[in-house]
């Protein structure tokens, strides 16, 4: 593969959902609402999205709640197919979206590590064994804790487990959906460190967050979404500015306190 080939390329992508018009989920609703011809309606979520992300870039995605950020990540990971346009992703591994999905609370931490790694593309027992060491070290969870069912974990411990597992394998592409806010101060710092480490070794990062500070410290580029479209794609500071503008904030300057 040409090293200059972008790892992610979207061209004029349109995404729409076939959505249940009234949230009809039971037969009763269905009968009541049957006067309408179809209970489903097609709702456009993203319109005409085009961008390229090169290998090793760290891109932040911003926008209001429900503007399609998660949908965009799902599109990149191939879970959702676009109605129109083209999505090309050049990566070998299956990227994990939202950290912590797939954690079964009834199973122990160790079993969860094994299953999560397998589901994201690390199948061989040897590989899994090799990485469990580093997961244990990084998560800071003790052997005893890893043998406990995950339902006994605190939220922070779950986040540790999820983050360590997702990043242990040096993924080529990491899609992160608003997760770093959990975990205590110490672990958050460790996470940032790990992300910097991954970046310097060539991992591409696409990162959804609402925290300007977090975005500034991790990403160099930002994409801002509003009303189904991309309204900004460029340096992260510009993206944060255009995000804050959505809420009619003007960035505060140093002299406001006086």
């Amino acid at each position: 593969m040409n090293p200059n080939t972008p790892i992610i390329q979207l061209r004029n992508v349109n995404i729409s959902y076939l959505q249940n018009r009234h949230g009809v989920f039971s037969l009763k609703d269905f009968v009541i609402k049957a006067s309408r011809l179809s209970p489903f309606v097609r709702r456009t979520v993203l319109e005409d999205i085009s961008f390229k992300i090169d290998k090793g870039e760290a891109v932040g995605i911003l926008g209001r709640n429900g503007c399609g950020k998660s949908t965009l990540l799902r599109t990149i990971s191939g879970i959702i197919k676009p109605d129109k346009g083209e999505v090309v992703v050049n990566t070998r591994l299956l990227p994990l979206l939202a950290l912590g999905v797939g954690i079964e609370l009834e199973l122990t931490g160790m079993e969860n590590i094994r299953i999560m790694m397998a589901l994201t593309g690390q199948y061989s027992r040897a590989t899994i064994k090799k990485y469990t060491e580093s997961i244990r070290d990084f998560s800071g969870l003790s052997e005893e804790q890893l043998q406990m069912p995950a339902k006994m974990y605190s939220t922070g411990m779950l986040a540790r487990l999820a983050f360590s597992t997702a990043t242990a394998t040096q993924p080529e592409l990491l899609l992160v959906d608003e997760v770093l806010a959990v975990g205590d101060k110490g672990f958050q710092e460790k996470c940032y460190e790990r992300i910097q480490e991954l970046r310097s070794s060539g991992t591409t990062l696409v990162f959804v967050s609402h925290s300007p500070d977090e975005l500034r410290s991790i990403c160099s580029r930002g994409i801002c979404l509003d009303d189904k479209r991309m309204i900004f794609d460029g340096p992260i500071d510009g993206a944060i500015g255009s995000y804050l503008n959505l809420f009619h904030y003007t960035p505060r300057h140093g002299h406001t306190g006086e």
Partner: peptide, 9 residues
């Protein structure tokens, strides 16, 4: 559901 929505398998 949660796996289907976040893993491409």
């Amino acid at each position: 559901a949660s796996l289907i929505k976040s893993l491409n398998i």
